[in-house]
Amino acid sequence: MPHDHHDHDHLSPSGHPYRQDNDAPLTYFQRMEIAVRELLIEKGHLTPAEIATQIDTMDARSPANGAAVVARAWTDPAFKARLMENAGDATREMGFDIGPLHLVAVENTADIHNMIVCTLCSCYPRNLLGLPPDWYKTRAYRSRAVREPRAVLREFGLELPETTRIRVHDSTADMRYIVLPARPPGTEDITEAALAKLVTRDSMIGTGLPLAPENT
């Protein structure tokens, strides 16, 4: 038996506890969302198909989009210059539909490590990278990232020397951020597409580094 749960009465045949059905009444805001959505449809402003398409569009966005942007910046100095000047426009130039997103790229160097947080809520460059990881929205990450970023990074397995300056970016208003990680050593001869595979989601949030080429 792979699991050691004690209360065997509440286990499914797989050995996991049953998840409770979500039978609670709708919350105020859930009712509000349904009411507004139904009104928009009833009055002809939106169709159910348009809503489903928009959900599909959002679900199709993923960190792979950002990884492609990072790999382009690593291989094309003129693109990198445009990315640092206006990351939103540079991303649109690559063909990504990011809507009205105002994107700022911040670059990791030998002396500087950048890390992104939204202390007020959960601002994240969703239009490029898709939905944020659950931990990004937790009170623990949001409050600790600005107070003790080094301790947080250590928990992510990243121990930075005291001589590296950490720049935390708090997305408090209209801009969204992407970290441009440093290109890993030993990647001089690999293609842009292979480089993109080294770029992890966390390396674009700043809680990780790109993979080393031998780890892919």
Binding site: V146, P149, R167, A173, D174
Partner: peptide, 17 residues
């Protein structure tokens, strides 16, 4: 921001204000 409690006094936080 944090005075003596800062992990590393020269690290920074940027915010939009």
């Amino acid at each position: 921001l944090w005075g003596d409690a800062a992990e590393n006094p020269a690290d920074t936080v940027d915010a939009e204000i």
